[in-house]
Computed example of a mutant assay.
Amino acid sequence: MGCFNGISQDSEIKKKKSECYADIDSGLWGGHCKSSSIAKENCALKCLSPACYELIYESDPLEEGEKDYIRSQEFKYCMYK
């Protein structure tokens, strides 16, 4: 796997995530997803991959101000599989 592969996958995820944000902003995911920036982030992760979200974040959703680098890497890995 070349190093460029990861870059294209990252940009794919960013593109899809911005589409998720747009859906959330338009209300498709319900009001609770717009209640705070962290609620929006959790909804965006669920939008990106419900299965991966359930596996990695469901039991312990992100909290306000939390940056969880390890879980975000696990989430990306889960999506690539």
Score class of each variant (00 low, 15 high):
residue 27 G to I: 04
residue 68 D to G: 02
residue 65 G to M: 03
residue 52 C to M: 06
residue 74 E to W: 08
residue 77 Y to P: 00
residue 55 L to Y: 07
residue 71 R to T: 01
residue 17 K to F: 03
residue 28 L to G: 01
residue 38 I to A: 07
residue 66 E to P: 12
residue 14 K to I: 07
residue 69 Y to C: 06
residue 45 L to V: 02
residue 8 S to W: 07
residue 21 Y to M: 05
residue 35 S to L: 11
residue 26 S to N: 14
residue 19 E to T: 00
residue 56 I to Q: 06
residue 8 S to Q: 05
residue 35 S to K: 14
residue 61 P to N: 03
residue 9 Q to N: 13
residue 68 D to I: 08
residue 58 E to A: 15
residue 24 I to A: 13
residue 47 C to M: 08
residue 68 D to W: 05
residue 19 E to M: 00
residue 23 D to F: 07
residue 80 Y to K: 15
residue 10 D to Y: 13
residue 36 S to C: 03
residue 58 E to Q: 15
residue 50 P to Q: 09
residue 9 Q to K: 15
residue 54 E to L: 11
residue 53 Y to V: 14
residue 54 E to N: 13
residue 68 D to E: 10
residue 9 Q to R: 14
residue 42 N to L: 08
residue 30 G to D: 06
residue 73 Q to E: 09
residue 65 G to Q: 03
residue 70 I to D: 11
residue 16 K to C: 01
residue 63 E to Q: 08
residue 43 C to D: 10
residue 79 M to C: 08
residue 32 H to L: 01
residue 34 K to R: 13
residue 69 Y to Q: 05
residue 30 G to K: 08
residue 24 I to T: 15
residue 12 E to K: 01
residue 30 G to C: 13
residue 56 I to K: 01
residue 29 W to T: 01
residue 61 P to L: 01
residue 28 L to A: 10
residue 42 N to D: 12
residue 29 W to Q: 01
residue 38 I to H: 13
residue 29 W to E: 03
residue 66 E to Y: 14
residue 20 C to D: 09
residue 39 A to C: 07
residue 38 I to C: 07
residue 48 L to N: 13
residue 35 S to C: 10
residue 28 L to P: 00
residue 25 D to I: 04
residue 12 E to W: 00
residue 22 A to H: 07
residue 80 Y to S: 15
residue 52 C to N: 05
